[in-house]
Design a protein around this nucleic acid. Sequence first.
DNA 1: TGTGCTGTGGAACGTTTATTCCATTTACGA
DNA 2: TCGTAAATGGAATAAACGTTCCACAGCACA
Lengths: 285, 285
Amino acid sequence: MTDISDAGGEHGTVPRDFAALRALIIGRAPELPRRLTQVASYALDNPDEIAFGTAAGVAQRAGVQPSTLVRFSQALGYQGFSDLQDVFRSRLRDRVPSYDERLAQLREHGLDASKTGLLLEGFSEAAARSVADCRAKADPALIEQAVDLLAGAETIYLAGLRRSFPITSYMAYAMGKLGIRSILVDGIAGLGAEQTGFITPRDAMFAVSFTPYASETVALTAAAKAHGAGIVAITDSLFSPLAPLADVWLEVVEANFEGFRSMAATMALAMTLTVAVAGKRAEGA
Amino acid sequence: MTDISDAGGEHGTVPRDFAALRALIIGRAPELPRRLTQVASYALDNPDEIAFGTAAGVAQRAGVQPSTLVRFSQALGYQGFSDLQDVFRSRLRDRVPSYDERLAQLREHGLDASKTGLLLEGFSEAAARSVADCRAKADPALIEQAVDLLAGAETIYLAGLRRSFPITSYMAYAMGKLGIRSILVDGIAGLGAEQTGFITPRDAMFAVSFTPYASETVALTAAAKAHGAGIVAITDSLFSPLAPLADVWLEVVEANFEGFRSMAATMALAMTLTVAVAGKRAEGA
DNA sequence: TGTGCTGTGGAACGTTTATTCCATTTACGA
DNA sequence: TCGTAAATGGAATAAACGTTCCACAGCACA
């Protein structure tokens, strides 16, 4: 950090803002050695990990040696890891508006009362309320039961149509990334019944439905139960037709705004279940 | 909007998010010794300095000794300056502390919690933070532009794959209920290109994509642009390949937990656009 | 004016950190 | 198959860091 004798040397200057650095990394990555590209990809995926972390910590999470981080930084023309880290930090400095700015903007929203501004406020508020509510009311023991049931399943069938479809489709995406075998029962081309035809007692079904309960979701769930599969359900009331079918059911009440219910709480709960199932399986193995 | 019930608590828990910490500092400042109030005021005015700086550096700029910083932190109930600094850093981070970190932190304070409970809290916090962030940063004028463009379209094509698919599928559901003609470009059976083949300059495309940007979404958007359709995009950075293609693009940065990003903010924004488009059309008619 | 206590500055300490260096492995061309 | 150069892992090192400790100053009260 002291000897900067040839700072303006062969490569001239090096990016000081994140935008240019990102471009540089993307450009250089292909021609870099294996471990260095590994660092490059980790850096682009987890920029704030680099901004705050220590060399040792980052290295461990990226699966390399600390010295590799220094080599990577120097390959890009920086003096060392700390030098590179400064650029990642500058990115966070510009991005977050200060408290005063936020307050000013809030006031602005309140005063001009633009129609879209009010809508965003409303939907944001609904999401925040739903999530807070769900967090307060959730029963960890019950969730644990649901996780146990799902973790023991060979294949997890995901049933959720209409407005519950975003939930199941995101779970399918997440389960794919986590290596959990799942089938998204999407009912496309009326194949719902065929998709669940091969379900066995070793499988489980995860069903999501809210008022007015999609009859197809209920029918699929009943069919899965008839085949002996375990059932986990997320629904919004004791009177839901899913409740009596399920081995474990979780209640989520989403706040609504302008007639559309937030999905934020259900989404959070769905992801909790998904990651917990992956965790439980990893433990077992 | 949050529970700061035991903010002034004895040796219970101490704020771990910046909003609560700010409230605590403001509340305690009047009763603190001279140098400590000096630190308090500096901390609130220069939160970034605290997040990134070293104890020595911050102390110098605040005009106190490093040891005073430690005393200040301890007066607030933290273990030391580093402990306090973590909270300032969490404000800038779009990643909520992982399950493992949280568990370790609880153990340090001699507490214990259920695994799934921690997961749910993490996902809830990611959702809450994303939504709050989006609400604070959103530019109503820009949203208005997006709404105008979409409201003028004959048919709205919705493009979003992988983890953006929940967004577009929910929009398709909502638009169906609101009588807005839309086509969900789902790429099933590789028909994405065919689905957008008939797009005209009177139509619009709404595209959602986050890092790592699904190449198919980008290709579909480019094709729609080539056909002369207006483009509205939601994406997460200026470097997104969608940004240069779009007539209007909105930035959303979702907090992530355990490697999965919340979709709550994007969902709220998507619903805002959808309902606003319906509203604008109703006005016009 | 004396006494005790809180507040403060600054040095010392032990720990953690980024970095450097070197032995070993890997990849590649002859 | 060998020989050379690049790449990598891991220990060693020196600097920087947060924290602790202690002596002294300021102040209130007797």
